[in-house]
Design a protein around this nucleic acid. Structure first.
Length: 359
DNA sequence: TCTGGGGTCCTAGGACCC
DNA sequence: TCTGGGGTCCTAGGACCC
């Protein structure tokens, strides 16, 4: 029997801030894009539980959050710091895993099938992990335990905050059946509406549906839906996972149609992307820009180079060329982004830093 | 209420080659 | 002269997740 844990950190960004700012503990606090550079156009990235009591949620516009609760503590995000904390978190989870897969900055799967032979073993492991997380790192987490990734993930949602939830294989179907289709992993806003339109309100409705009909309606996705709804997921905890793309995007403090401002920002973001490529030892072949206009209309334009490159200047040059060729002239832009993809390991010259480190 | 930034995966048409 | 099918790459866009 496979036994899989999904460890999900509770209100991670704010929890990280609490580590260095104990004064905010117990008070409503959120991490949200610093309103100064973005003109307050950001959203709440994370809200702690006291803030959630007032209805503050991640994804909520900061302007709205501010209207709801003025004396909330607002903190600009500090990704470098969260990454540092995240590395410690992941190292800790790894110790408990026979196979480990990081899902995001604050979430990871641990396949524990070798060291745990029963549900009791898995639960005991989860309890120890959670205890160590609190004692060693001072961070709360929630853990879902089950026999596959999908159900472990769904169980962790039920475990929040600060809990552990086991769903046995035999109970998976019933565990899922009462939940709304939109709660199923992989079903978002759009698909949730479509499914409800067809009369599938709960995950149980989907589970009971004729799979042939689902495939007729949704092709291969329909088959996947039917499996998920029935708690079936054969996918493995994936150890070796490679980055597919690296990008940066930024929202202007004020919408702009100023080419020079756009070009400057493309330059800055390209430099950051180039640094990230260097850190990871990767070269790219494709450059894609994203333009979001004032009305939220978004377009992507990309170009594939004839060669691999590691050069930030080249990213910037191609980005600005794409912009000049395709941007609607005079239209106000809200946001721009640049991303490189088609990445390969680059075994070229070492960076100065590596030389300095004697690597 | 007015909407961020980091990603992944999938689809689909057209070009091009065999 | 008219007619295939498969494979791969390129480009654009959409949905989804955290």
């Amino acid at each position: 029997m496979r036994l899989i844990l999904l460890v999900d950190m509770d209100y991670f960004f704010v929890a990280c801030e609490e580590l260095r700012r104990p004064d905010i503990k117990g008070k409503p606090a959120v991490v949200g894009s610093d309103p100064r550079p973005t003109g307050g156009r950001g959203v709440v990235m994370t809200a702690n539980y006291p803030a959630r009591k007032f209805g503050l949620r991640s994804g909520m516009p900061l302007s709205l959050a501010y209207r709801i609760k003025k004396d909330t503590i607002y903190m600009p995000e500090d990704f470098e710091y969260y990454e540092q904390v995240s590395r410690k978190v992941m190292d800790l989870i790894k110790k408990y895993a026979d196979r480990f897969e990081q899902v995001s900055i604050d979430e990871a799967f641990a396949d524990v099938s070798v060291r745990a032979k029963s549900y009791e073993d898995a639960l005991a492991l989860a309890a120890r992990l959670k205890k160590e997380m609190k004692e060693e790192l001072g961070l709360p987490c929630s853990i879902g335990v089950s026999t596959n990734k999908l159900v472990a993930k769904m169980a962790s949602e039920d475990a929040k905050p600060n809990g552990i939830k086991l769903v046995k294989e035999a109970d998976a179907k019933e565990f899922l059946s009462g939940k709304r289709v939109g709660d199923l992993y992989g079903v978002g806003k759009k698909m949730g509406k479509v499914l409800e339109g067809f009369g599938y309100k709960t995950i149980g409705d989907l589970a009971k549906a004729n799979p042939v009909v689902l495939v007729e309606r949704f092709k291969s996705y329909g088959a996947e839906l039917h499996n998920s709804a029935n708690g079936i997921d054969e996918s493995e905890v994936q150890e070796n996972w490679e980055v597919k793309s690296i990008g940066r995007e930024r929202t202007f403090a004020r919408d702009t149609s100023d080419r020079e401002e756009v070009a400057r920002l493309f330059g800055g973001m390209s430099k950051e992307v180039g640094e990230e490529l260097g850190k990871q030892g990767l070269a790219f072949k494709v450059v894609t820009i994203k333009l979001r206009y004032a009305d939220f209309e978004e377009v992507l334009k990309s170009r594939s180079l004839t060669h691999r490159s590691v050069d930030p200047e080249e990213i910037s040059r191609v980005a600005i060329q794409l912009f000049d060729r395709y941007a609607e002239r005079g239209e106000e832009l809200r946001k721009i982004g640049v991303r490189v993809s088609n990445l390969v390991k680059y075994r070229g010259q070492k960076s100065m830093k590596e030389y300095a480190a004697g690597g």
